[in-house]
Computed example of a mutant assay.
Amino acid sequence: MTYSLRIADIPSSERPRERLIALGANSLATAELLAILLGTGQGKGKLSAVGLGHYILQQLSQHRRDPLDVLRDINAQELIKIEGIGPAKATTILAAIELGKRTFQIRPLERVIIENPTAAAAALSHDLMWESQERFAAIFLDVKNRLIGIKVITIGTATETLVEPGEIFRETLKQGANRLIVAHNHPSGNLEPSQEDINLTQRLLEGAKILRISLLDHLILGEGNHCSLRDLTDLWTKYPQDD
Protein backbone atom coordinates (compact mmCIF):
# COMPACT_ATOMS: atom_id res chain seq x y z
CA MET A 1 0.00 0.00 0.00
CA THR A 2 1.18 3.52 -0.79
CA TYR A 3 0.38 5.31 2.43
CA SER A 4 0.78 8.75 0.82
CA LEU A 5 -2.02 7.97 -1.63
CA ARG A 6 -5.07 10.15 -1.07
CA ILE A 7 -8.30 8.44 -0.06
CA ALA A 8 -9.95 10.19 -3.03
CA ASP A 9 -7.53 8.37 -5.34
CA ILE A 10 -8.44 4.94 -3.99
CA PRO A 11 -11.22 3.07 -5.89
CA SER A 12 -14.52 3.83 -4.18
CA SER A 13 -15.09 0.15 -3.33
CA GLU A 14 -11.81 0.10 -1.40
CA ARG A 15 -12.30 3.29 0.63
CA PRO A 16 -12.77 2.70 4.37
CA ARG A 17 -16.13 4.47 4.68
CA GLU A 18 -17.61 2.74 1.67
CA ARG A 19 -16.29 -0.64 2.84
CA LEU A 20 -17.74 -0.10 6.30
CA ILE A 21 -21.18 0.66 4.83
CA ALA A 22 -21.03 -2.29 2.45
CA LEU A 23 -19.40 -4.91 4.66
CA GLY A 24 -19.75 -3.72 8.26
CA ALA A 25 -17.26 -2.22 10.69
CA ASN A 26 -15.85 -5.57 11.76
CA SER A 27 -14.50 -6.14 8.23
CA LEU A 28 -12.12 -3.17 8.44
CA ALA A 29 -8.54 -3.26 9.63
CA THR A 30 -7.71 -1.21 12.72
CA ALA A 31 -5.83 1.36 10.62
CA GLU A 32 -8.92 1.80 8.43
CA LEU A 33 -11.13 2.39 11.46
CA LEU A 34 -8.65 5.02 12.64
CA ALA A 35 -8.66 6.56 9.15
CA ILE A 36 -12.42 7.10 9.35
CA LEU A 37 -12.00 8.87 12.68
CA LEU A 38 -9.06 10.93 11.43
CA GLY A 39 -10.86 12.07 8.31
CA THR A 40 -7.65 13.41 6.75
CA GLY A 41 -4.02 12.41 6.72
CA GLN A 42 -0.77 14.43 6.68
CA GLY A 43 1.95 13.99 9.26
CA LYS A 44 5.27 12.36 8.40
CA GLY A 45 5.60 12.05 4.62
CA LYS A 46 2.16 13.61 4.07
CA LEU A 47 0.44 10.31 4.69
CA SER A 48 -3.11 9.49 3.67
CA ALA A 49 -5.66 8.94 6.44
CA VAL A 50 -5.09 5.17 6.17
CA GLY A 51 -1.32 5.71 6.14
CA LEU A 52 -1.57 7.91 9.21
CA GLY A 53 -3.66 5.20 10.89
CA HIS A 54 -0.88 2.69 10.23
CA TYR A 55 1.71 5.16 11.47
CA ILE A 56 -0.20 5.70 14.73
CA LEU A 57 -0.37 1.94 15.31
CA GLN A 58 3.32 1.65 14.58
CA GLN A 59 4.17 4.34 17.11
CA LEU A 60 1.93 2.78 19.73
CA SER A 61 3.44 -0.68 19.23
CA GLN A 62 6.89 0.39 20.35
CA HIS A 63 8.41 -1.76 23.10
CA ARG A 64 6.43 -4.71 21.68
CA ARG A 65 3.16 -3.51 23.14
CA ASP A 66 -0.20 -4.23 21.51
CA PRO A 67 -1.31 -0.86 20.05
CA LEU A 68 -4.95 -1.48 20.94
CA ASP A 69 -3.92 -2.14 24.53
CA VAL A 70 -2.08 1.20 24.52
CA LEU A 71 -5.06 2.99 22.95
CA ARG A 72 -7.34 1.76 25.71
CA ASP A 73 -5.68 4.01 28.30
CA ILE A 74 -3.99 6.69 26.18
CA ASN A 75 -4.53 10.39 26.88
CA ALA A 76 -4.69 13.43 24.63
CA GLN A 77 -1.15 14.60 25.36
CA GLU A 78 0.30 11.22 24.37
CA LEU A 79 -1.63 11.18 21.11
CA ILE A 80 -0.67 14.73 20.19
CA LYS A 81 3.00 13.77 20.48
CA ILE A 82 2.52 11.58 17.40
CA GLU A 83 3.35 13.53 14.26
CA GLY A 84 0.18 14.31 12.29
CA ILE A 85 -2.11 14.22 15.35
CA GLY A 86 -3.40 17.54 16.64
CA PRO A 87 -6.02 18.29 19.28
CA ALA A 88 -8.95 17.70 16.89
CA LYS A 89 -7.82 14.25 15.78
CA ALA A 90 -6.75 13.30 19.31
CA THR A 91 -10.09 14.20 20.86
CA THR A 92 -12.00 12.36 18.10
CA ILE A 93 -10.02 9.18 18.78
CA LEU A 94 -10.43 9.50 22.54
CA ALA A 95 -14.18 10.12 22.21
CA ALA A 96 -14.55 6.97 20.09
CA ILE A 97 -12.56 4.92 22.60
CA GLU A 98 -14.68 6.16 25.51
CA LEU A 99 -17.91 5.52 23.61
CA GLY A 100 -16.73 1.97 22.91
CA LYS A 101 -15.96 1.44 26.60
CA ARG A 102 -19.37 2.68 27.68
CA THR A 103 -21.18 0.57 25.09
CA PHE A 104 -19.29 -2.53 26.21
CA GLN A 105 -20.03 -1.90 29.89
CA ILE A 106 -23.79 -1.45 29.50
CA ARG A 107 -25.77 -4.65 29.87
CA PRO A 108 -28.64 -5.09 27.38
CA LEU A 109 -32.02 -4.25 28.89
CA GLU A 110 -34.37 -7.12 29.55
CA ARG A 111 -36.95 -7.18 26.79
CA VAL A 112 -40.58 -6.70 27.75
CA ILE A 113 -42.71 -9.80 27.16
CA ILE A 114 -46.00 -9.20 25.35
CA GLU A 115 -48.21 -12.06 26.52
CA ASN A 116 -51.75 -10.83 25.87
CA PRO A 117 -53.82 -8.10 24.14
CA THR A 118 -53.78 -5.92 27.26
CA ALA A 119 -49.97 -5.87 27.33
CA ALA A 120 -49.88 -5.12 23.60
CA ALA A 121 -52.39 -2.29 23.96
CA ALA A 122 -50.33 -0.80 26.79
CA ALA A 123 -47.21 -0.90 24.63
CA LEU A 124 -49.06 0.84 21.79
CA SER A 125 -50.99 3.33 23.90
CA HIS A 126 -48.55 6.21 23.44
CA ASP A 127 -48.58 5.91 19.65
CA LEU A 128 -52.24 5.10 19.00
CA MET A 129 -54.70 5.48 21.86
CA TRP A 130 -55.55 9.19 21.83
CA GLU A 131 -54.60 10.23 18.32
CA SER A 132 -57.05 12.28 16.25
CA GLN A 133 -55.97 10.54 13.04
CA GLU A 134 -56.00 6.86 12.30
CA ARG A 135 -52.60 5.25 12.65
CA PHE A 136 -51.52 1.74 11.83
CA ALA A 137 -48.70 0.28 13.90
CA ALA A 138 -46.94 -2.99 14.48
CA ILE A 139 -45.30 -4.66 17.46
CA PHE A 140 -42.34 -6.85 16.53
CA LEU A 141 -41.54 -9.83 18.76
CA ASP A 142 -39.02 -12.65 18.95
CA VAL A 143 -39.91 -16.33 19.29
CA LYS A 144 -40.45 -15.88 23.04
CA ASN A 145 -42.82 -12.93 22.59
CA ARG A 146 -40.15 -10.49 23.77
CA LEU A 147 -40.49 -6.98 22.41
CA ILE A 148 -38.03 -6.10 19.65
CA GLY A 149 -39.61 -2.83 18.56
CA ILE A 150 -42.72 -0.83 17.74
CA LYS A 151 -43.29 1.21 14.61
CA VAL A 152 -46.12 3.33 13.23
CA ILE A 153 -46.38 2.11 9.63
CA THR A 154 -48.84 4.66 8.22
CA ILE A 155 -50.86 7.70 9.33
CA GLY A 156 -54.24 8.32 7.71
CA THR A 157 -57.14 10.72 8.11
CA ALA A 158 -59.62 11.11 10.95
CA THR A 159 -61.66 8.23 9.55
CA GLU A 160 -59.34 5.88 7.69
CA THR A 161 -55.81 4.75 7.15
CA LEU A 162 -54.44 2.74 4.27
CA VAL A 163 -51.73 0.14 4.70
CA GLU A 164 -50.36 -2.54 2.44
CA PRO A 165 -49.38 -5.94 3.86
CA GLY A 166 -46.08 -5.67 1.98
CA GLU A 167 -45.10 -2.62 4.04
CA ILE A 168 -45.77 -4.47 7.26
CA PHE A 169 -43.89 -7.62 6.30
CA ARG A 170 -40.90 -5.70 4.94
CA GLU A 171 -40.54 -3.94 8.27
CA THR A 172 -41.03 -7.22 10.15
CA LEU A 173 -38.17 -8.85 8.26
CA LYS A 174 -36.03 -5.73 8.67
CA GLN A 175 -36.54 -5.89 12.44
CA GLY A 176 -35.59 -9.57 12.50
CA ALA A 177 -38.90 -10.44 14.15
CA ASN A 178 -40.50 -13.89 14.23
CA ARG A 179 -43.86 -12.77 15.57
CA LEU A 180 -46.04 -9.78 14.96
CA ILE A 181 -49.01 -7.91 16.41
CA VAL A 182 -50.66 -5.23 14.31
CA ALA A 183 -52.95 -2.50 15.54
CA HIS A 184 -54.73 0.65 14.53
CA ASN A 185 -56.80 3.23 16.32
CA HIS A 186 -60.37 4.45 15.86
CA PRO A 187 -60.39 8.13 16.88
CA SER A 188 -64.18 7.95 17.34
CA GLY A 189 -63.74 5.48 20.19
CA ASN A 190 -65.98 2.93 18.44
CA LEU A 191 -63.92 -0.25 18.53
CA GLU A 192 -66.13 -2.35 16.28
CA PRO A 193 -64.01 -3.69 13.40
CA SER A 194 -65.04 -2.67 9.91
CA GLN A 195 -65.21 -5.06 7.00
CA GLU A 196 -61.98 -3.47 5.72
CA ASP A 197 -60.32 -4.29 9.06
CA ILE A 198 -61.40 -7.92 8.74
CA ASN A 199 -60.32 -8.17 5.10
CA LEU A 200 -56.90 -6.72 5.90
CA THR A 201 -56.46 -9.13 8.79
CA GLN A 202 -57.26 -12.06 6.52
CA ARG A 203 -54.66 -10.89 3.98
CA LEU A 204 -52.08 -10.48 6.72
CA LEU A 205 -52.76 -13.93 8.12
CA GLU A 206 -52.35 -15.46 4.66
CA GLY A 207 -49.11 -13.56 4.04
CA ALA A 208 -47.70 -14.39 7.46
CA LYS A 209 -48.27 -18.08 6.82
CA ILE A 210 -46.29 -17.92 3.57
CA LEU A 211 -43.43 -15.99 5.19
CA ARG A 212 -43.44 -18.20 8.31
CA ILE A 213 -44.11 -15.19 10.52
CA SER A 214 -46.76 -15.58 13.21
CA LEU A 215 -49.38 -12.85 13.28
CA LEU A 216 -50.59 -13.05 16.87
CA ASP A 217 -53.37 -10.45 16.84
CA HIS A 218 -54.88 -7.34 15.30
CA LEU A 219 -55.94 -4.79 17.89
CA ILE A 220 -58.17 -1.75 17.63
CA LEU A 221 -57.55 1.04 20.17
CA GLY A 222 -59.44 4.18 21.04
CA GLU A 223 -60.24 6.47 23.95
CA GLY A 224 -58.71 4.25 26.60
CA ASN A 225 -60.10 0.93 25.39
CA HIS A 226 -59.06 -1.81 23.03
CA CYS A 227 -60.41 -4.92 21.36
CA SER A 228 -58.80 -7.99 19.84
CA LEU A 229 -59.84 -9.29 16.44
CA ARG A 230 -58.44 -12.64 17.46
CA ASP A 231 -61.03 -12.77 20.24
CA LEU A 232 -63.84 -11.30 18.14
CA THR A 233 -63.47 -13.35 14.95
CA ASP A 234 -62.75 -16.89 13.80
CA LEU A 235 -59.97 -15.77 11.44
CA TRP A 236 -57.24 -17.47 13.45
CA THR A 237 -59.18 -20.74 13.23
CA LYS A 238 -59.43 -20.40 9.45
CA TYR A 239 -55.81 -19.27 9.08
CA PRO A 240 -53.89 -20.88 11.97
CA GLN A 241 -50.49 -19.44 12.86
CA ASP A 242 -47.43 -21.15 14.29
CA ASP A 243 -47.73 -19.65 17.77
Rank of each mutant, 00 (worst) to 15 (best):
G166C: 00
E196G: 09
L191D: 05
S188G: 07
F140E: 07
G189W: 02
R135E: 04
L191H: 06
T237M: 12
T159E: 06
G176S: 10
S214Y: 05
A158R: 15
L235C: 02
A137E: 06
R146V: 00
R179M: 14
L219D: 03
Q241N: 03
M129W: 06
Q133A: 07
L173A: 04
D217T: 06
L124F: 01
K151F: 01
S132Y: 12
E223K: 15
I181Y: 02
I153N: 02
K151A: 10
I150Y: 00
R135F: 02
L235Y: 00
A183W: 11
W236L: 09
N178Q: 14
L141A: 10
E164V: 07
R170H: 02
K144Q: 13
V143R: 15
E206V: 15
R179I: 09
E192S: 14
T233E: 01
G176I: 09
I155K: 14
N178L: 11
F136K: 07
E171A: 09
E223C: 06
L211A: 12
E160G: 00
Q175S: 11
L216A: 04
N185T: 06
D234T: 15
G156K: 05
L235M: 06
H126V: 12
S132A: 14
L229I: 05
M129S: 13
K151L: 10
S228G: 06
D197P: 03
D217H: 08
Y239H: 12
L204N: 01
I139G: 00
S228M: 07
I148N: 01
L229C: 03
L232Q: 14
Q195V: 11
L216S: 04
R212W: 03
H186D: 01
L147F: 12
R203E: 08
H186E: 01
T154K: 13
K151W: 02
T157I: 05
Q133D: 10
